[in-house]
């Protein structure tokens, strides 16, 4: 598997048949809006990770085309917005051939007056039989004026498929904090646990030294 930093604003990658790649993005040194297009051939596997714990504004758009049979595409994303930031992360997966698999999993935390938006669509073309896809997006809002939008969509033109989607947006409220503090945790510790819960899943896909830096960035943001 190859792990690399992304420098180009717009990137198109063609994954040859049988190849497996992963791309792990971070926003540690800033991040700007960009679009990533991925074209996957037969039996290829692509994993995209995005640990987005820093301040920036704009959108990340990912378009994955599973052009040939048995291609697999996975996205793990965790994002934080704070102050007045507005971020949008959109992942579209186009299943254009049989037996493709995809998973898009986005978790996020919105603080202050920021807006975090997860959307995207898994499309299964007619004839792309035996495909499976899942789009899930979860956001939690810490403050009264924080905003979240989760809309993982499915568009399916083929009958013989497995497809699911899930979305949740919840606000950390007084009841949550009361419950957690009633077990002995201080409010700050309770908030930290919630933050870690939403961001840790993506860290499993990073190396130890990267995780350290990411956690430091995370502590500074919350």
């Amino acid at each position: 598997m190859v792990k690399e930093d992304l420098e180009n604003v717009n990137l198109t990658m063609d994954l040859p048949a049988g190849e497996a790649r992963s791309l792990s993005l971070t926003s540690l040194n800033g991040f700007s809006s960009r679009k990533i297009t991925l074209n996957l051939r037969r039996n290829s596997v692509f994993v995209l990770n995005f640990a987005d714990f820093c301040a920036w504004e704009g959108e990340l758009i990912v378009e994955a085309n599973l052009l040939e049979e048995d291609a697999e595409f996975t996205v793990h994303c965790a994002s934080i917005t704070n102050v007045n930031e507005k971020k949008r992360i959109q992942v579209n997966v186009n299943h254009l051939a049989p037996r493709g698999k995809s998973l898009v999993s986005c978790y996020g935390i919105s603080l202050g007056k920021s807006l975090l938006r997860f959307d995207g669509c898994s499309y299964i073309k007619h004839g792309a039989v035996s495909c499976s896809t899942r789009q899930e997006a979860k956001a939690i809002l810490f403050d009264e004026e924080s905003q979240g939008f989760c809309s993982p969509a499915l568009k399916i033109d083929e009958n013989e498929v497995v497809a699911s989607h899930a979305a949740s947006v919840g606000r950390v409220n007084d009841d949550h904090l009361f419950y957690m503090t009633s077990r002995g945790l201080k409010k700050d510790e309770a908030k930290r646990l919630i933050t870690m819960g939403y961001t840790h899943p993506v860290l499993a896909y990073y190396e130890e030294r990267e995780v350290e830096a990411l956690l430091k960035a995370l502590e500074e943001r919350v």
Partner: peptide
């Protein structure tokens, strides 16, 4: 509230809230 808990008081709630993102064992 946390001090009351640490002082030895415990409330089993009538409607325990669901807390997204917080792993039970970690909590």
């Amino acid at each position: 509230v946390d001090e009351r808990s640490k002082a030895g008081l415990f409330l089993a709630m009538q409607n325990p809230v669901e807390i997204p993102g917080v792993n039970s064992a970690e909590f």
